[in-house]
Design a binder for these strands. Structure first.
Lengths: 129, 129, 129, 129
DNA sequence: GTGGTCTAGACCACC
DNA sequence: GTGGTCTAGACCACA
């Protein structure tokens, strides 16, 4: 099943970031596995009616982040996941994002356990280890 | 205990957004309660060595979002929290952020229950109801 | 029945304007009639816990607009209403405000007849001629 | 027919608010329809001999209010109208403005039916549903 | 080309 | 004292 992108041009989030997020989500969700290839820049650009440079930028940044690897002549391949740093460091890296969740949850009057459960359910859904 | 801001000018995130996030976090974390006043625009601007307009923009947007209210001649006061929409709608509003957490957690090789527990701990720590 | 003011310090509308509006509304609604006196500046300032200068400013502007007249040693008295200009001019003067209503109604998906009826009902309620 | 702005620098109303009002009026009046683009910030700024930031502020606030949407690299596009809240809530939201109309009408010696008719005529003129 | 961010500094409105 | 508005001009991000 090919990965299909969908963008909201009006969301305020740059298109290249929307693309990056969707690749990351596909990888995290198991729809893309190690070794799979992303659709080509041209393909995606045509499908989304968007400038190829925009897609290219997204792919380059994903490569920089170690999510995918360029294989010359073939395209972008999903890289092996590698945990970097100690457990403690990796937890620390997640903290700012969790703080944002906490703030948003507060504003929405959603309780801690409630949100934690939503999150766990979301992650279990796509767990495959 | 006065609220103290800290910004990372290199993070790419606009200063006014960093300020907004910190106010939101302080409110969600109970360090600022309903009725408390934010430090004045000039004060913060001086402390951060930043243009007052930048802080003013952050405060205005927080006011539009209902987080604080302007009291003429006195300053910006933390507003009462009001949940808007049905439970379902509010949960839905949180979903995109949770998806981001899930993707980041995967990249960091952190498990669902592990992350859910971190989040719950973070939110319990600052729970006041 | 004495006129009682109520202000929302957080509404964004300057206090002196809120006071002015309430005097105008009281006059339009028949709660204050020609010759009646407004409560004194001090009285109102004390009641609202507000700087007397603020009330004084409101009263001065109302006097400038011909809504009230200062009677030395007694206070501010409601003036006789006098229509200024031709009917056409007076209608024209109301137009910008009506345009604002039209725009707001559109945004709220309220129909013309619906809004017109609301307005007429509101005005009939306080009509006394 | 391009939207043309006109501002009264002496009116006391901030320029950015005058611009906002005119956009809203143009949308409500059908001169701008869903999907149409506003003139660019630079264009308007040049036309009005005003700082681009002033126009930018107006546009940003209109975006926050859901009147227009930013399309990256293209400009500001008129958004679909979406009524929010119950009928009752929306009527309630209009009330303060109607009260202002009632007070102004009284001051101008214009009767309820007279004003209601003016308003309805104004709204019918631009009705398109 | 589009809008967004930020600065330095002036002036205003309100309390 | 508080925040709000505006300017002139620089630089950035995005498509």
């Amino acid at each position: 099943m090919a990965l299909r992108f969908h963008i909201l041009p009006t969301s305020g989030v740059p298109i290249y970031r929307q693309v990056m997020e969707q690749v990351r989500a596909a990888v995290a969700g198991g729809h893309l596995r190690e070794g799979d290839f992303l659709p080509s820049v041209r393909e995606v650009a045509a499908e989304l009616a968007v400038n190829p440079m925009t897609i290219s930028k997204a792919y380059s940044l994903l490569e920089r982040d170690g999510v995918v690897q360029m294989v010359r002549g073939q395209g972008m391949r999903v890289a092996a996941r590698r945990a970097v740093g100690t457990l403690r460091q990796r937890r620390e890296a997640l903290r700012p994002l969790l703080a944002q969740v906490a703030a948003a949850a507060y504003q929405l009057s959603l309780s801690g356990p409630e949100v934690a459960q939503m999150l766990e359910a979301l992650m279990k859904e796509t767990d495959r280890e």
